[in-house]
């Protein structure tokens, strides 16, 4: 290398006009025949395919995803069961007689009986409602509270953002289950246990997660050129949030909400298992699993069926979230 590789060579040297390089070799001038390389109109608009919105496009890819189909069918089934359990079981879950206790399967009782002599199948069917109610309503409340908080914090920033970020951190320091345990043993909750107290408790500790996700998505979109463009068209700041920022931030929130729904169901079951969730008068998978502990060694199927129902339900929601994530992934779009 020459010696003048000093920092000075970084400054532009006035070279005057550059003339380009002329090769000493002979270079052939090749021109492709026009028929082989036909010219197309510059930037022609293709109108072959059908117009698709982002949602329509997502739907199109979801339709072909077996994960999505299976999980949706399962979720629909679980919801149907929870609304109309009588359609699925002619046996009453409360018609128990101790003489059947821990019996194996019998005609009309495909899953056998539990230690109190109740039909396990009927209890699994009737237990769906509590889980679904807790999961669905907790998710609805968490999305409303967390979504609004996160969207406002992310969009307006400033002190609101700082306060909400701190608040979120504080709630994060208490894991969902731990926080829920503390709240559920408070007198005001302990004395009036019902699905609704569980929902309120899980909402208290669940909203910061959705708030974080929403905030992140909103921050990503609030500076987008299309928001600036809308503002310069005269749209108010809040109007731009509602019309442009929020719709574009929904995808990750939907994904996380779907997965969270599964985890709320698990949380409810865990609380019930610990004896702090639903009262034992409410029929639920969590309570039945908890009760089956006594006899699990002799008759594992009493544990197995409610646990399987619970796991399949949770799995469906998590799979749905996974499928939605694939379909709504912003990187896959465009």
């Amino acid at each position: 290398m020459s010696e003048n590789q000093t920092p000075e060579s970084v400054t532009p040297e006035p070279r005057g006009k550059r003339e380009g390089k002329i090769s000493t070799r002979h270079i052939e001038h090749f021109v492709a025949p026009l028929e082989e390389t036909p010219l197309q109109d510059i930037d022609k608009v293709s109108i072959g395919s059908e117009p698709l919105s982002m949602w329509a496009e997502a739907w199109r890819s979801l339709r072909k995803n077996p994960l999505f189909i299976i999980s949706t069918l399962l979720i629909l089934l679980v919801i149907l069961v929870s609304i109309f359990p009588q359609w699925f079981s002619s046996t009453s879950p409360t018609a128990c007689s101790l003489e059947n206790a821990r019996e194996g399967r019998a005609p009309g009782h495909i899953m056998g009986f539990n230690f109190q002599g109740c039909d396990v199948y009927a209890r699994v069917i009737y237990g769906a409602r509590a889980s679904v109610i807790v999961g669905v309503f907790t998710t609805i409340f968490v999305v409303i509270i967390g979504g609004i908080m996160g969207a406002l914090a992310g969009y307006y920033g400033g002190w609101l953002d700082a306060v909400l970020a701190r608040l979120g951190d504080i709630f994060f320091a208490l894991p969902l289950i731990l926080g829920a345990i503390i709240v559920m043993q408070l007198p005001m909750f302990r004395d009036s246990r019902s699905p609704w107290t569980v929902i309120v408790t899980l909402t208290i500790f669940g909203w910061p997660q959705i708030a974080r996700i929403t905030r992140g998505a909103v921050v990503e979109n609030r500076g987008a050129d299309f928001v600036q463009a809308a503002r310069s068209l005269g749209l108010s700041k809040f109007g731009a949030l509602v019309r442009h920022v929020v719709p574009n931030s929904l995808a990750p929130v939907i994904v996380v909400a779907s997965i969270s729904l599964g985890t709320y169901i698990v949380a409810e079951a865990t609380l019930s298992y610990l004896g702090l969730g639903l009262p034992s008068s409410v029929m639920s998978w969590g309570n039945d699993i908890s009760a089956s502990q006594i006899s699990v060694r002799n008759n594992p199927s009493i544990l197995f069926w409610p646990a399987a129902a619970l796991s399949i339900t949770v799995l469906s929601f998590i799979m749905l979230g996974d499928a939605l994530r694939d379909a709504l992934d912003p990187k896959a779009r465009r």
Partner: peptide
């Protein structure tokens, strides 16, 4: 252009 070489030769 569109995946094909349409012309090549001395730069200038």
């Amino acid at each position: 252009y569109k995946g094909q070489v349409v012309e090549s030769g001395p730069a200038l």
